[in-house]
Write a protein that binds this DNA or RNA. Structure first.
Lengths: 244, 244
DNA sequence: GGCCCGCGAAGTGTATGCACTTTTCCAAGT
DNA sequence: ACTTGGAAAAGTGCATACACTTCGCGGGCC
């Protein structure tokens, strides 16, 4: 969108990346529900390009794990089985635990102070109870963990995995007492990091993420009966399905 | 390859994937050196296809991190700076440590026995000194760690990261006493896993991988002066470069 | 003699067309 | 009436064609 370029062909650095960012965001935000089929032609029309760059975007989305491409049957936004969801959360837990461990060892003084400030200032979100606000804080908190590890590769893996999990985490904090529990778990993590206790930070983070995963699973299960009765999670999928 | 289909168009499930597997393998095996430019046209001729599927393959390779695509300037097989190499090894260490931790907790009896057998039977490779044999054992050993964690997502991440590291590990075991040291480090890992000591397994694995990373770095540095004097690692690359 | 500008060739990115596969729907048979 | 075969339509995948960008080179200008 934005600058309506008068020319017609050859740029790529803009075309595909812009589409990719936009569509990926829509999937991650949940605007496009898992299981939806993405038609290459309507995508092409929507962005006023031909099907070729759309196909390339699909390839990127598939590589990110946000969509699934089956040989001659088009692409659908990824739909994760319960087992896979738990497996991904488990990987996420290990990833974040590793980050937290490194945070405890390597965060700069500024980063530690900033983390603590962020964490403390979020306390009123817990009381006021604005779910969206807490979710924003939560996102930022975890991002700080990824960054504080000072390991770009780990950070990227964590961000990627989080992106793939994001479509399945919506309304995660709707459960009444979840924000307060979450904040307390964060508190343990912050404490361990500030104290420089690497193993404790790892343990606390792992526990926290696994706790979140249980929330996600319960939330999904409670919705299985109402929202989509025709078993949307039945594709077996063979391998783990989280190559990324 | 295999069945030389007489037809001409529309199959994808074979065409791109076969090319991808083959080229990725060549990059991983080091047949194509890092920094080499891959010409889309000659690729197309080589596989007797048009440039379209070749481009798709390039997209996949880029997503795997094996090649770098610059806007209008073609693709080159990935060349990793020293800092990025170390960062990737660090991530690898955390990934493998997490796997080892889970191995200690969840490996079946059969897996434990099989791991120990593999490890013990490799002892003679250390003495006989066939580097290739030891490397094969080493690959298998680590693969068992990934699998034994029973976490498909972690396994895939580990395999992906290993693929990206592989081109830079060649002749890693050429250093005289490396196999013997490596075997002893493996021994510590196996011991911890068999004993069910999760944290010890994680520590031992992390230490082992970091040890390997130092070997890789030293090997690269010792070759920097001779093999490629015109500084092949100077691209700054901005972000971490291991989005996976 | 050295630097800069413009032109040409090589190569990348996108559009379009065509071949094949899958799916759907309708008709004929049981 | 239900199932089953097949044909048409929809949609994916590849090839080819074309537009634009980048890099290299030679001639003109300082």
């Amino acid at each position: 969108m934005s600058t309506q370029s008068p020319l017609s062909q050859a740029r790529e650095g803009n075309t595909v990346d812009e589409m990719l960012e936009q569509v990926a965001d829509e999937i991650i935000r949940g605007d496009i529900a898992p299981g939806t089929k993405l038609d290459a032609r309507v995508m092409a029309e929507r962005f006023a390009v031909s099907r070729t760059p759309v196909r390339e975007m699909f390839a990127h989305l598939a590589a990110m794990g946000l969509v699934v491409r089956r040989p001659n049957r088009g692409v659908t936004v990824a739909e994760i089985s319960d087992e896979n969801l738990m497996a991904m959360y488990e990987a996420m837990a290990e990833l974040e635990a590793a980050c937290a461990r490194l945070c405890a060892l390597r965060m700069t003084l500024k980063e530690r102070q900033s983390l603590q400030r962020l964490h403390q200032s979020a306390l009123h979100h817990v009381r006021d109870g604005t779910t969206d606000d807490y979710e924003a804080y939560n996102l930022e908190f975890h991002s700080r963990l990824y960054a504080g590890a000072h390991s770009p590769c780990l950070r990227d893996m964590a961000l990627t995995t989080r992106s793939r999990l994001q479509p399945f985490r919506h309304a995660q904090f709707r459960l009444p007492q979840r924000p307060s529990h979450s904040w307390e778990e964060h508190d343990a993590i912050v404490g361990a990091i500030l104290a420089g206790d690497a193993e404790a930070a790892a343990r606390a983070t792992r526990a926290h993420v696994l706790q979140v995963s249980h929330g996600s699973r319960d939330y999904l299960e409670s919705n299985r009966g109402n929202d989509r009765p025709r078993g949307a999670h039945t594709h077996h999928d063979g391998d783990g399905g989280c190559d990324a």
